[in-house]
Amino acid sequence: MTNPESRPVLQWSAAMALSGTIGAVVLESGAAAPAVAFARCLVGGVLLVVWSLARGWFRDWRPTRRDLLLAVAGGLLLVGNWVLLFASYSLSSIGVSTVVYHTQPLILVGMAAMFLGEKVGRSHLVRAGVAFAGVVVISLSAQGDDGHPVRFAGIALALGAALLYAGASFIAKQLKHIRPHLLAALQLTVGAIVLAPALMFTPLPSTAPGLLWLLLLGTVHTAVMYVLMYASIGKLPTTTVALLSYLYPVVAVVVDMAAFGHRLTWPEGLGMLAVLAAALAPQRTKADMRNAQPGIPSRASR
């Protein structure tokens, strides 16, 4: 391939496809959400620290006190987002939780308007209304992997995760001057420290398969995925990133149906399309283009 965008496209596509399989790995591990998030932080954080050290990125890094405080705050929101999202899978389904979770870019725009005074265009208000309607339809019509209606608690947890992720992205926008690999390594370290006490109540799996699933999550679905995202995000147009970000929820829904037997009803499918169309629609204004798209880590990551 001679197109200069070919490599970044493949890297970003691979990262989005990996994101879509996270839910399956979480459920297969059999561990509670806090333990899964801890393992992801520990394994992924160690690998990212080693990667950054090998690249020499720590050598000249002199973070200010403000940077450290913001990074820690963003890390707490990021890790909290994982705990809520992972917990939502078993209460609804992987596909439902992932699609509802993709309301986060709309929430982020609202935060920018509230705290930074950025103007919210009419198109964003329309998309937000469509997405909200889609969530309502999903809540009323979707079925869980057990064949019963999804629990509202699962929808609420996914929305809570979206809110926390939007907050983490909002803070990350204030730390654009920090290399994303370093920021991610720091935040994952914070997450591992904060979640360690939770292991007294939600221990790690006692079986080898369960531990191997968590090892896979920390290595491939965290460290490798972060490297792929950060290697490609700055080299692709926003429209390309937004389009390829559809892979994340689409893969999650396909995996949910293929591996866990989730049956997609037509109202549920319609609600999912409404949420994704509203959240992933290409932005038209310069102000909108500055706002994070789903799948764009904004120096934080899913």
Rank of each mutant, 00 (worst) to 15 (best):
T2S: 14
L10Q: 09
L10P: 09
A14E: 08
S19L: 13
S29C: 05
P34S: 00
C41L: 01
V43D: 04
V43N: 00
V49R: 09
S52Q: 07
R55S: 08
R66P: 02
A71C: 08
L76Q: 06
N81P: 08
V83A: 06
L85C: 10
F86S: 05
S90R: 15
S90D: 11
S92Y: 05
S93E: 02
T103G: 11
L106P: 03
L108V: 10
M114H: 11
K119M: 12
L125R: 13
V126D: 07
A128F: 14
A128D: 07
D145N: 15
D146W: 10
D146R: 14
G147I: 05
A161Q: 03
L164F: 15
Y165W: 13
S169N: 13
L175A: 08
L182K: 02
L183V: 01
L186F: 11
Q187R: 02
A192P: 03
I193V: 15
T202V: 12
L215S: 12
V220C: 06
A223Q: 04
L228H: 07
T240D: 12
L243V: 15
P249Q: 09
A252D: 02
A258P: 00
P267G: 09
G269V: 02
L270K: 00
A277D: 03
M289I: 12
A292Y: 03
A300N: 05
A300Y: 05
